Simulated assay, not measured.
Amino acid sequence: MPLAVLADQCVQCGLCLPVCPTYALDGNEAESPRGRIAIAAALARGQVSPNAELREPLDHCLGCLSCERVCPAGVKYEALLVETRSLLGPAPERPTALLEVVKRPRLNLWAQRLVRWTGVWRWLGHALPGAWREALALAPGKPHELHHVHGKPKQPRPGPPPPSRKGKKVGTVALFPGCVASIYDAEAERATEMLLVAAGYQVTHLPAFCCGALDSHDGASREADAAAAHVRQAWANAKADHLVTVTPGCLSTLRKALPEVRVDDPYRLLAERIDTLAFHPYPRQLALHVPCTQANVARSDAALLKLLRRIPQLELKRLPAPPYCCGAAGSHLLQFPERAAQLRESVLAHITTLDVQGLLSSNIGCRLHLAAGLKEHASALPTLHPLTLLAQQWIPS
């Protein structure tokens, strides 16, 4: 759909303003969805020329899509944002070299190992560009683990449980590892496979690569198109019924690449088979952070809560909804670290008021960003993917 047509869908009612994190941060109309739509419309019609002042509010947008969820006119804000950024092209300050490392799992893994083995960040960190320093700060150290509370701690499993002979198989699920998640959420991906097999699904794996979300949301349309072609080829080879990812930040891009395929996070599939799963009690209080993409794109927060509430004695304290956003937003935390830190502080302030023993969050970018903020506050509060907790407490049948 042409950009001008997308912009014309907006009726300028302003209902998006109260849920916009950047409008709450700046109190500036240009930093609101309504303001950005007006800028996009003017650019599309040639009424203004692209310049740094005009593109700054567009670059600041987190793409959280809280505005799209509450819009009474059905404005396709994500499509509008992606089209406008594609028109402008990547921001001059975009850390392209760093993102090339981030998008390539093997290269990313070797870079992380080099940093850990040599301790290069200790003497080189202050000399690096800001985005590289932020990336080093996000690299997780030794994790603080959530305590097991049902007898002895479980030992790491060598793989998923064998397929159950009980009942009929309900379909084949292809698991998409992504790029960053394939490294930092490998445990959650193993947990997902374990739970899906226990629920009666067969599981296959796509190779680890970037889905194109980072490029698409940064205006690098040629690279995003190449990634989409990679997704389609990998899916064609998978011979599966559904595609899932443990990182909700990938969902929108995967759905765009595969419009005829059911692409989801695992919670809906597991919730549909919830009667096949049982869990050990977990008498603890945990904070639950629902990433913007899970609430507004996957819209699977109800399924997530249904599964977590299946764990006896677990008490969840959900963090507030929009306009609160942690500020991670793909590469936003690398390009605009000060703004990302300000947004994160609002979320951390809520966490500190809660009497909890851990923090759950489904999106790897959000979880690394929040963990780095907790570390800055000298907090040892552990963070975990909800699927890892579910697998930890799962009772094999």
Rank of each mutant, 00 (worst) to 15 (best):
S362E: 14
L58D: 11
C210N: 10
A7C: 15
L251K: 05
C366S: 07
P396D: 07
P50F: 10
P281K: 13
F336Y: 14
A198H: 08
V261R: 00
H205I: 05
T204A: 02
V231A: 01
E134W: 00
C210T: 06
D225N: 06
N28S: 03
A91G: 02
E187Y: 06
S66H: 04
R85H: 07
V297A: 10
T96F: 06
Q9E: 13
A278C: 06
R34G: 11
L304D: 07
P158T: 12
Q12E: 14
L81E: 03
L307H: 10
P2S: 10
I37F: 04
L98Y: 04
D301F: 08
A52D: 15
L360D: 07
T247V: 15
A371Y: 01
V244N: 11
R255F: 01
G27V: 00
L286Q: 09
P312E: 05
H280C: 12
A40V: 03
A24L: 05
L308I: 06
G358D: 09
K152F: 00
L254V: 07
L270Q: 11
Q294N: 09
L370C: 07
L25F: 12
L107H: 08
L206Y: 03
C250A: 12
R232D: 01
Q202D: 15
R106K: 14
G327Q: 06
L343P: 10
R309N: 15
Y23V: 01
A236S: 14
E100S: 14
R85T: 08
F279W: 13
H217G: 02
R318Y: 07
H144E: 15
L277A: 11
R94T: 12
A227H: 09
L286V: 09
L269Q: 08
V19Q: 09
L214Q: 02
V115D: 09
A7I: 11
F336T: 05
C211H: 08
H217E: 02
E260I: 00
A181T: 12
P323Q: 09
C211T: 06
L334F: 14
K256S: 01
Q9W: 10
G330R: 03
L389Y: 07
P207R: 12
S362K: 05
E31C: 05
P291C: 12
A73D: 10
L107R: 14
L17I: 15
V5F: 08
C64H: 06
H148I: 00
H242R: 13
L384I: 09
C61Y: 06
V101G: 06
P160K: 09
L354K: 10
K239W: 00
R122M: 03
H148T: 11
H147Q: 15
